[in-house]
C-alpha cells in the first residue's frame, strides 16, 4: 500500500510517500497564499522523488494548519496525533515529542504506542517559533541559515527575555549598540527562544527520550540551547525533521487502514 502524507504548514507544505511502511519519497514547497497549489506542488515533488505516479497512491492523509484544503485526503489527522505517531515511528523509545515550526510550537507526552496522553501548544506568540529567529536575523543583518552556526561559537550567556518578539527586537538593538559580538547576540536569541519552548515542554513534563521534529530541528544553535535548558544530553532528531508531521499523518492512516 502506498500512502501520501501531506502537512500543509504555515510556511511550507511537505509531503512524504510511504510504501509498505517505508519512506520512498519526499517533497516540499512554500505554502504562500495559494494552499491548494502548494499542496499539489509538494505532492508532485514527492511523487517525482519516489519515482511513481499519482495513480499509484492508494490513500492520502493530511495534517497541518491548512489541512482543510487537502481536498483529496481520505483522512485528516490533527497535528498532535501526527507528531506523536511520527516520533513513535522514528524513535519507539520516544516519550516526549516537540514540533517547532515556523509559526507555532507544540509538545506532546506520548505512550509506548505513540498515543498522545497530554499536549501543549504555543499558538499566540511568535517568540517560541522559527519566525522569531528569522525576525532577529533581520535585526542582526545576517542570513537566517548563519544564525545557528554563529550561536554555537559563543559560550556567553546574555539574559534576554523573549516574552514578545517586538520587545526582543528592541533588546537586540540595544545589544548591537552595546557592541556585543554578533555570535553572542545570536546565542542569546536562541537561548531566549529555547526558553519559551522549554517552558511549554515543562508543562507536559520532561520525559526521555525526547524527540524533536519541525524545521527548527535543522538549526544547531537552537538544538544546543534546547538541550542545555532541558538539562539533558540528547534530543533525538530525524534527518529531515521538517517532514515529521507529514510522516506522522501517513503512519496514522496506515495504522487505521
Amino acid at each position: 500500500m502506498i500512502i501520501a502524507g501531506i502537512d500543509c504548514g504555515a510556511k511550507n507544505t511537505k509531503t512524504v510517500i510511504l510504501k509498505e511502511g517505508s519512506i520512498i519519497g519526499k517533497g516540499t514547497t512554500l505554502t504562500g497564499f495559494d494552499q491548494v497549489s502548494a499542496i499539489k506542488g509538494s505532492l508532485d515533488a514527492a511523487l517525482k522523488d519516489a519515482g511513481i505516479h499519482a495513480r499509484d497512491v492508494d490513500n492520502i492523509s493530511g495534517t497541518g494548519a491548512g489541512m482543510e484544503e487537502i481536498k483529496d485526503a481520505d483522512l485528516k489527522v490533527n497535528e498532535i496525533k501526527a507528531m506523536a505517531k511520527a516520533a513513535n515511528y522514528l524513535f519507539p523509545s520516544a516519550r516526549t515529542v516537540t514540533d517547532v515550526g515556523a509559526e507555532m510550537g507544540r509538545a506532546a507526552k506520548i505512550d509506548e504506542n505513540g498515543k498522545a496522553v497530554d499536549f501543549a501548544i504555543n499558538e499566540k506568540c511568535a517568540a517560541g517559533a522559527g519566525a522569531f529567529i528569522e525576525a532577529m536575523a533581520r535585526a542582526l543583518e545576517v542570513k537566517l541559515e548563519e544564525m545557528g552556526p554563529m550561536a554555537i561559537q559563543s559560550n556567553k550567556s546574555i539574559p534576554m527575555n523573549a516574552q514578545c518578539a517586538i520587545f526582543a527586537e528592541s533588546e537586540v538593538v540595544g545589544l548591537i549598540h552595546g557592541k556585543i559580538p554578533k555570535v553572542d547576540i545570536s546565542k542569546a536569541i536562541h537561548d531566549a527562544m529555547a526558553s519559551r519552548v522549554v517552558s511549554m515542554i515543562r508543562r507536559i513534563g520532561v520525559n526521555e527520550d525526547i524527540v524533536m521534529i519541525g524545521g527548527c530541528g535543522l538549526n544547531p544553535g537552537f538544538v544546543d540551547s534546547l538541550k542545555n535548558q532541558l538539562e539533558i544530553d540528547k534530543v533525538y532528531i530525524p534527518d529531515d525533521p521538517a517532514f515529521g508531521a507529514a510522516l506522522g499523518a501517513a503512519v496514522v492512516l496506515k495504522e487505521e487502514a
Binding site: 539574559p159 534576554m160 526558553s195 519559551r196 517552558s199 511549554m200 515543562r202 508543562r203 513534563g205 535548558q229
Partner: peptide, 9 residues
C-alpha cells in the same frame, strides 16, 4: 532578575 523556564507548569 534572570529569565527562567521552570515556573510555566
Amino acid at each position: 532578575h534572570e529569565p527562567q523556564d521552570v515556573t510555566e507548569p
